[in-house]
Design a binder for these strands. Structure first.
Lengths: 192, 192
DNA sequence: ACATTACCGTTCGGACCCAAATTGTACGAA
DNA sequence: TTCGTACAATTTGGGTCCGAACGGTAATGT
């Protein structure tokens, strides 16, 4: 492990400002850089390949999930795409209107809706995904294959940690307190 | 959780589906996991510490930037927070209305607006940030300090790559073609 | 049989987000 | 002085996003 990598100016300032407060610096840096990287990568991909096909990031992710998994129930697609059910409803409707996606009822359970790609959707993904992957390679250009694997593995462990222990942790933190509703979103119904 | 689809399973399916297409798999995995991790971490932090203080993710990031950097010009805050200037105007107005942030004019350049925290804002950050950092430590619990440094360093190189060569790359890809405007956003005024 | 409970996708309200258009300040040139 | 250009933040318009409430279907009492 090479000794001292360049630390951003922000991280140095933070360390100074937080001089008096005990801080887990490495963990702070990893979280901060996850979001920096996510934002930078997303912006690059949107502005290079996605805009050319008139797709938003979310729309592309939804198409990708259904492409890879095949016909799927909406809740699984939302989960896998990392968006809420409500958001998926709108995105799926848009994609359906553009002829890229199909919405079908479940044969035995009337509550479910199944999503699948149309032929046009399949064709789009076969055309767009290679371009997308090309830009993934570009953004990761400074990492060799081993480093990619190593970083991906570290991130996978972060995701696993939250998926496996996140809810329990949140319960423990609130410890019986009210879940504290969001500032935005629909107001709870005034209880009788 | 029956039928739960784990990450590694998704990656295996992708590899199968893409069997015929030549793909940079390691680079694909790193990008995918950056976004999975970003989404998981953000959701955990919003639902654990941020909601309790009635802060959105964006509002917290803006407060954090001004806290760390001290009184700053809005364009720098927007840049550092990773949001557009227009978005910042709204967020700053909300935070000002809640008494957490102050907006002042620049002493010599009347075009600039300076943001700074009020005493109440400072106090909020001194109270909330340690909780926030505690959860940063939680999500990174499966990584030791060296692994955190290593992952953070890899991500930093991704950010640097996009920041330094992204625009050039996009120009090369479009190669003189129109920038292809967004589906959303205000329409350009039709030029006479 | 019928009420209850559980779960699913959709609707709705408020906040967020970008980028174009707008408004306003600064400053050098004519 | 009066332009004109440059650059600042803000407003505006189209749209995304989450999560509570909603309406509907399935499963489970009783």
């Amino acid at each position: 492990m090479p000794g001292h990598r360049s630390i951003t100016e922000a991280e140095k300032l933070a360390a100074a400002k937080l001089g008096g407060i005990p801080i887990r610096r490495e963990q702070m840096a990893v979280v901060a850089n996850i979001h920096r990287a996510a934002s930078a990568v997303r912006q690059h991909l949107e502005n290079s390949v996605l805009r050319g096909s008139d797709l938003t990031w979310t729309a592309f992710v939804v198409l990708w999930v259904v492409w890879i998994w095949g016909e799927s129930e909406t809740r699984h697609v939302a989960e896998e795409a990392g968006i809420s059910k409500g958001t998926l409803t709108g995105v799926a409707r848009t994609l359906e209107a553009r002829g890229l996606m199909r919405r079908g009822g479940h044969p035995t359970d009337g509550r479910l809706v199944l999503l699948s790609l149309t032929g046009e959707g399949e064709e789009l993904m076969r055309r767009v995904f290679p371009q997308f992957n090309e830009e993934e390679a570009f953004v990761a250009e400074q990492l060799d294959d081993d480093e990619c694997r190593s970083v991906a593995d570290g991130l996978r462990r972060v995701v696993l940690q939250v998926e496996e222990h996140g809810e329990e942790r949140r319960r423990a933190l609130l410890n019986g307190a009210e879940p504290a509703l969001r500032r935005s979103g629909r107001r709870p119904k005034p209880k009788a």
